[in-house]
Design a protein around this nucleic acid. Structure first.
Lengths: 193, 193
DNA sequence: TGAAAAGGTTGAACAAGTTCAATAAATGAA
DNA sequence: TTCATTTATTGAACTTGTTCAACCTTTTCA
């Protein structure tokens, strides 16, 4: 049961059958249709989710109503507002399905139960947070030093499976540029080759 | 001994006297003078460091020889290239003292010893990585959606203790702008008030 | 099927940020 | 103290990216 989740865990830590089923039963499956919102800014994020189907975007909306996308999550990725979830603070973020999706949700209570009773789970999440952090550090450096053209080219190269499934509006919000300018970058690339 | 480090740990997890001294003896104190480099890109990062005096910058140098600063660390902050340290891969980063400094270093072997023998330490580092990650997420969103003026104003407000000790060159490399443009922003602010 | 909504492109005017060069001010080391 | 180095400022020309408006194409869904 929950095959994708089990495989994912197995890649990071080795659990016995009992530990694995003890942990996975702490999740509940939720179907989320396209455009449905799982978390709104202002609410406390009550879940951490493992995506088993579809795609989500985690994003911020500023005072000018512009959207900044923090990350996308497809199959085998996790979604949450880690700050809101762990500190039970109102979130600054939105989480929305951009395809018809399925996600396995775990509550804070159940996650704490896992930390208390399954020490290897603490390691799992430490390692995962670390990996996510490394990826964000690299993205930060790219954003500080590279032009939009370069960031777009690298996005396509690094995440071809996201690129194929995303609209240019979403990609522009991830790169931090207007969608019109992204369109001009694409035009330039198309005519250069 | 190592009072700053003990206080810092105590803020995150509660250790017995024995655990605390068992952990802190895994560190060694190093004096680092201004402009001395602790880690060069290309090397494997062999340490994780807790700053007890002075200040460091962790940065990247791109092909055009421009520097992007990932973060600064003063007293009570940690420094490492987490990717290079945990995966024993060549680093992409430099770590340099920008004041005469003191840092407590722990090796990978000793950190793994701590993880294996002091389960609370696993929690300490999970929580710390999580906090650092939340801060970087906020910075990422700011970088995607805000102008340099706004980012500068927020940097001063959020980190006044860093601001006072840093040159404008360092701040510009952190904000991702040229130091000339930062100078113009400062001029504009000065004349507006 | 057809109308509405969403996504994509283009151009023109503008704003934000860079580059280069010249100069001044502050700091540091002998 | 002094000379060299580093840091900060300013202006002019340039590049990168935004905004707004118009228009076209594709998708959605009743």
């Amino acid at each position: 049961m929950y095959q994708l989740l089990c495989d994912h865990i197995e890649q990071h830590v080795h659990l016995t059958e009992a530990e694995l089923s003890g942990f996975t039963t702490l999740f509940e499956l939720k179907n989320v249709s396209k455009k449905q919102i799982l978390l709104k800014a202002g609410e406390v994020c009550r879940f951490e989710g493992f995506v088993t189907k579809g795609m989500f975007r985690v994003y911020h909306i500023d005072k000018n109503a512009a959207e900044q996308i923090l990350y996308f999550a497809i199959e085998n990725w996790w979604i949450t507002d880690i700050d809101s979830f762990t500190n039970e603070r109102p979130s600054q973020l939105f989480i929305e399905a951009i395809e018809d999706s399925e996600v396995l949700l775990i509550s804070k209570k159940n996650k704490e139960f896992a930390y208390a009773n399954l020490p290897k789970i603490e390691k799992l999440f430490r390692v995962m947070t670390q990996k996510t952090h490394v990826a964000l550090q690299r993205r930060m450096i790219d954003n500080l030093g590279k032009t939009a053209d370069q960031r777009y080219a690298e996005f396509i190269e690094r995440y071809p499976q996201l690129f194929r499934r995303l609209s240019n509006l979403q990609i522009a919000a991830y790169l931090g540029i207007s969608h019109e300018f992204l369109s001009k970058i694409r035009n330039k690339i198309a005519h250069k080759k």
